[in-house]
Design a protein around this nucleic acid. Structure first.
Lengths: 126, 126
DNA sequence: CAAATACTAAAGTTTTAACTTTACTTTCTG
DNA sequence: CAGAAAGTAAAGTTAAAACTTTAGTATTTG
């Protein structure tokens, strides 16, 4: 259920702004490494390295045809990151639900510090 | 629409495995910095620094009461990352849809090049 | 076939980030 | 009130990443 190594690789891949720019570009369709490098202020070799990181993390897929390596998005990688995030958010919401239950329960068997508490104040956080 | 600075901060924050571990821990409920540090093989000061990165990225919120700083998850940060990912995935799917349309069309005026090689740009020489 | 193209591999440099140590502040607790 | 507890701030150290340069290898193209 979500290989920790895969999670690590994909979040590391997405942490770099250049690599996110590559992903955004590839969202508009496949491109060669040369095309990816064109708008970027760095050497082709640097872009090749970024492409390798993205591929190893499963965020993109590449295929070499002749002397051109064509790159395109692969949803597998983004799914790993998306699922990790969704899981954390789900946990957070479950907790809020349970908290809501406790507050709704007028007579909970919960051994809380029974603070004298103004019944008018609503404790809320946004 | 998704401040690039915010995206950068949150993906940088989530790139570190220790920080993701902190987020996972906080998914099970709030905790002090000391409690967060307990299971980790590093100094308290290091954990404080991680907590600061997480807070500045909007992934967690903290509040200091007396001498203890209490930390809890804040969905705002994860939302930023989640939305960025969802947008890329949406683009990818729209593209597949269009491709499907083209393939379904038996008599399409198929433009060969999906990303037209810009006729204006002269091929670069190095 | 010679030159150009599009990478690729390896090594070195530089920047960034993580982590430590030390010293200090503030807030409890006995 | 003395000392412990829980951070915090700053500086230094170390390790990881990003990027460059150089020197290649296949693969077209004229």
């Amino acid at each position: 259920m979500l290989d920790p190594g895969a999670v690590d690789r994909v979040f590391h891949a997405l942490a770099d702004p250049t690599r996110r720019a590559l992903v955004e570009r590839l969202g508009r369709g496949p491109a060669s490494v040369k095309e990816l490098a064109a708008p970027l202020p760095m050497s082709l070799a640097a872009v090749v390295q970024h492409v390798q990181v993205l591929e190893q993390s499963g965020v993109i897929r590449t295929e070499k045809i002749g002397r051109v390596r064509s790159c395109r998005l692969d949803p597998t990688g983004l799914d790993v990151a998306g699922r990790w995030i969704a899981e954390r958010r789900a946990l957070w919401e479950r907790r809020l639900d349970r908290l809501g239950d406790l507050l709704a329960e007028p007579d909970s068997p919960c051994e809380q510090r029974a603070q004298p508490h103004d019944p008018n104040t609503t404790e809320e956080q946004s």
